[in-house]
């Protein structure tokens, strides 16, 4: 009866592996389905006006999302302006001066910060910025997104700075260079391409966030570049238009989603290519 038992074992093996293949097919199929729908439904909404015109009321043909494009750019720009210096400097601290008890604690807190649900980040930025200013603003949206970016950039910077070999540090020290110059001009420079990739990924990630912006950046039907005023963003615009009962607004939502997904995917793929080549130190 040995062969029967073996048959059974073989069958279990093959069944499980078939299911494993099937899972991979499901995973890939879902990605393709989402991309396909976004491209098909989105591409038809896109033309030049879409990028340079302001939104029109429903029923009025034409119009675009120029204000939301500019707004997303503004909010993400504000977030980057806050998060990049904080994240990179904190990364330098953790990797270059982190030989103490305080550093692991900061590292842990960065992980905590990273795991806060994005909607909670929105609530926090509301309390931090919107309440004192008594109005929704691009600044509040930027602060919300920066809270999400800081831990990502901190940990990426730390990892990449740590990957710079000690021989490079020693080579610079042996030239009679003070430590701070070694860190800034040699170590940071060596890790710069990697950090830039990490920053790009962080930007792509927060640029696609909606929840933290709902009651911080809020919304604006007009073009605004003022940091102290409510501002329209691509993601909030998609949400508002998708939730509306009007077909033409729904179409605009797909168009914006298409633009968003293209940006996010390009950023991710470029960074993947970068990460493959950059560690040839």
């Amino acid at each position: 009866m040995k062969s029967l038992r073996y048959f059974k074992r073989r069958t279990i093996n093959n069944t499980i592996f078939f299911l494993s293949y099937a899972s991979a097919v499901i995973g890939v199929a879902i990605l393709l389905l989402i991309l396909l729908y976004t491209v098909i439904k989105g591409a038809s909404a896109i033309n030049l006006d879409f990028f340079i015109k302001l939104p029109r009321p429903t029923g009025v043909p034409g119009g675009g999302i120029a204000n939301a494009l500019v707004g997303t750019f503004m909010v993400v720009g504000i977030a980057s302006a806050i998060a990049i210096p904080v994240g990179v400097m904190a990364g330098i601290y953790l990797s270059e001066f982190g030989n103490n008890k305080f550093a692991p604690f900061i590292r842990y807190l960065a992980d905590v910060l990273n795991s806060i649900p994005s909607i909670v980040t929105g609530v926090v930025a509301y309390v931090f910025v919107v309440l004192p200013m008594h109005r929704f603003s691009a600044l509040a949206g930027g602060v919300a997104l920066s809270i999400m970016m800081i831990p990502i950039i901190t940990r990426t910077s730390e990892e990449l700075i740590r990957m710079v070999p000690d021989t490079i540090r020693e080579a610079a020290l042996a030239l009679g260079t003070p430590q701070w110059k070694v860190i800034i001009f040699i170590v940071l420079r060596t890790a710069a391409a990697g950090i830039a990739t990490g920053v790009m990924l962080a930007v792509a990630r927060v640029g696609g966030e909606t929840a933290p912006l709902l009651f911080t950046a809020f919304n604006n039907s007009f073009m605004s570049v003022r940091p102290d005023q409510p501002i329209s963003t691509m993601t909030v615009l998609i949400y508002n238009y998708a939730s509306s009962p009007y077909a033409d607004w729904n179409a605009m939502a797909w168009g914006a989603a298409f633009v968003l997904i293209v940006i996010v995917l390009i950023a991710n793929i470029v960074s993947k290519i970068f990460t493959k080549t950059k560690y040839a130190l």
Partner: peptide
């Protein structure tokens, strides 16, 4: 005043 050349060549890679 006292420079050093290391075991493995370590030019600054970037």
């Amino acid at each position: 005043r006292i420079g050093m050349v290391f075991q493995k060549p370590n030019p600054f890679p970037t």
